[in-house]
Amino acid sequence: MTTRSFTSALLGGALATCLALPAAAGNPLDIGFVYQSPVSDVGWVAVHESARKQLEKEFGNRIKTRVVQDVKVGPDGARVMRDLVGSGSGLVVLGSFGYMNDGLKLAADNPATQFVHASGFKQAANFGTYNARWYEGAYVVGMVAGKVTKSNKLGYVGAIPIPDVVATINAFALGVKRSNPAATVTVVWVNEWFNPGSEREAAGALIQQGADVIGSGFQDNPAVVAAADAKGVWSVGMFSDLRKSAPQKLLTSITHDWTPHFRQVVTDTLAGKFKGAPYMGTLKNGGVGLLEWNAAVPPDVVAMAKTAQADIASGKLVPFAGPLKDNTGKVRAAQGAAVPDAEIAGMNWFVEGIQGALPR
């Protein structure tokens, strides 16, 4: 495995750009991973890295992997993708929503190369997507947060307001409302995936406003939960086990695992059977999970959470079921109905109970 930083040398064309040809018989499948943030021990990229390392163990010399980290969306990202394809990658993992359009264009130009893209909603014959219903876990966490708050003020630090992030925050707020109708949720956006300084400031601002539970909304580091822990405030982590950074007050983390899906993608690619299709991780299939609850959470609240988690997995409990209004009063789902999956995939509105508006 070769790990590469995003350097001017790479961008300068250290890798030739050309139409990729299938790997010759006996040659390992070259897999390129492109990340929007630096590689670290926790967070979004860390979950990808865990899956990548597991693939190397399982497939051995049948594959080789390369990593390009801290790649910004736009011209830099497009160039890195082209360089990977041009230097022989037969499978490219695009680990950020913003890589979608450049990735699709490259896939169209290189039909012999397969791509999988995080959080996207567009597919092609050689361009699949992978995503997860983090909102299922967030709904359960919201129910617990509504029980442990004393101020009835909760906060969420949002990264970038793409639908996945919005849906997760909305589900958290709906879970809060289910267990504590008097509570409200305030959201602060930092508009970056990785900016520990801004994330700490956002968490601090919410705490100053009286929030005593703070959610970390897709940050690729533990800054939010660490800031909350330092103030003795409950927090909700994302992606990884963040107890080292918030040893006292982390309620839980909403986690996911890409390994089973990536394993299937690699298997299909090696067999020449890759199909560009969507994958969705859920509580039911194990693609989404929750870290064990903080020991200070009352047993009856933990039992409530476990029941809700099982009910969501079975389909008995639907997080975005009606009657449901947004925070402007518009009806989004009538009684007996639910917000359709297609609308959740493009969610750009806040539910009732969230204070504030989405950036436009």
Score class of each variant (00 low, 15 high):
W44N: 13
S96V: 06
M81L: 15
A78C: 02
G142Q: 09
S240K: 02
L104E: 09
P323N: 01
A203Q: 09
A230G: 15
F172I: 08
G128I: 06
G137M: 11
A51V: 04
V144A: 13
Q114N: 15
F194I: 04
T267S: 14
G286S: 03
L19I: 14
T259Q: 06
G77K: 02
L270S: 08
K147F: 01
P247Q: 07
V165M: 08
E201V: 12
R52Y: 00
S5T: 02
V71S: 07
V165H: 07
K177M: 01
S37N: 14
K244H: 03
N348A: 15
L91I: 06
I344F: 03
L94E: 03
G142N: 12
G353Q: 01
F172W: 09
A305S: 11
A333T: 01
A167E: 01
S96I: 03
I160A: 01
L283P: 11
I312G: 02
G43T: 10
L15T: 00
E343P: 00
A171C: 06
S151A: 11
K122M: 09
W134G: 14
K122Y: 07
A230T: 09
R360A: 15
G336E: 04
G217T: 09
G60Y: 07
L19M: 07
G322Q: 06
S50R: 15
K325C: 00
V141I: 15
P38E: 02
G137T: 11
L290P: 03
Q69I: 03
L290Q: 05
A132C: 11
D41C: 00
L84H: 00
P196F: 08
Q123D: 11
W44I: 12
S151I: 05
L283V: 12
Y135A: 01
